[in-house]
Amino acid sequence: MFKPLDPLLHSQLRLAIVSLLSHVESAEFVFLKEKTKTSAGNLSLQLSKLQEAGYVNIDKGFKGKYPLTTCKLTEKGRAAFLSYIEALKDYIG
C-alpha cells in the first residue's frame, strides 16, 4: 500500500520551491523566480498556497529603497517535505 503523496507538494513548481527552500536558511522572491524559471504571478500564487498551509513564511520588507520579499521554510513545511520524500521512496521502490 503506497502512502498518499501530499497534494500540496505534488506539483512541479511548489515542489521546486520547497526543495530550494529546504537547502537554504531563506531566499528572496527574485531568487526563487530565477531558479524556478516561472513568472512572478505564478510564483506568487504558489507561494500563497504554501503560506496558507503553513509550509512557508513570507516576510515583506525593504532592501534599501526597493521592496524585498523573503521566503523561509517553516518546521511544518520541512516535516511535510521529508514525509513527501519518504512517501516517494515507496513509489520508486
Binding site: L5, S11, Q12, A16, S19, L20, K35, L88, Y91, I92
Partner: peptide, 21 residues
C-alpha cells in the same frame, strides 16, 4: 494534484533543485 506529474518527475524536480543550490 497534477495528474501527469508522477513520482519520477518529482524526484527529478528535487534533484534539479539540489543541483541548483
Amino acid at each position: 494534484m497534477e495528474t501527469s506529474y508522477n513520482p519520477t518527475d518529482a524526484i527529478q524536480t528535487i534533484e534539479q533543485s539540489i543541483k541548483e543550490i
